[in-house]
């Protein structure tokens, strides 16, 4: 893999920094976020690796991973990160790039009536909609 300054400082890297308000250089790869994450076993790119990928400018890989959809925004990682990195905010920024800029939608049609039937609280539906669709 060839690393260039252009990749490191690409506009999309900057955009993610802007949307999330986070400086990815703050992360020193301690892995505390991953260690804390309750869903790390089903993620394809681990939370600390998300930060590393960003530091390396590898944004496309992140936009194609399942991690950003699995992250539950539980804030466990952010609460324990020794560097105060807001990882859920970064996950959100990655999702937003797909949802807003690329017209992506994660929720499959037909899901809602199915779950609504089960008495799932409104809160869950609204959250899912806001997290997964534009």
């Amino acid at each position: 893999m060839k690393i260039t300054r252009d990749n490191l400082c690409s506009s999309i890297v900057k955009e993610i920094a802007e949307i999330s308000g986070e400086n990815v250089a703050g992360c020193y790869q301690c892995g505390k976020c991953t260690a804390a994450c309750p869903v790390n076993t089903v993620m394809d790119i681990l939370p600390h690796q998300v930060l590393r990928f960003l530091q390396l400018g590898l944004v496309e890989a992140l936009l194609n991973c399942n991690t950003i959809w699995i992250c539950a925004s539980c804030f466990t990682c952010a609460g324990r990160c020794p560097r105060g990195v807001d990882l859920p905010g970064i996950m959100e920024a990655l999702r937003l790039i797909l949802l807003r800029k690329r017209g992506f939608s994660r929720i499959k049609a037909g899901v809602i009536p199915r779950v609504a039937d089960k008495g799932m609280p409104e809160q869950a539906l609204v959250s899912a909609f806001r997290k997964y669709t534009r």
Partner: peptide, 11 residues
């Protein structure tokens, strides 16, 4: 710990 929140809609 986290219960899984709205992941239950999808996962």
């Amino acid at each position: 710990e986290c219960c899984g929140v709205y992941l239950s809609v999808q996962n």
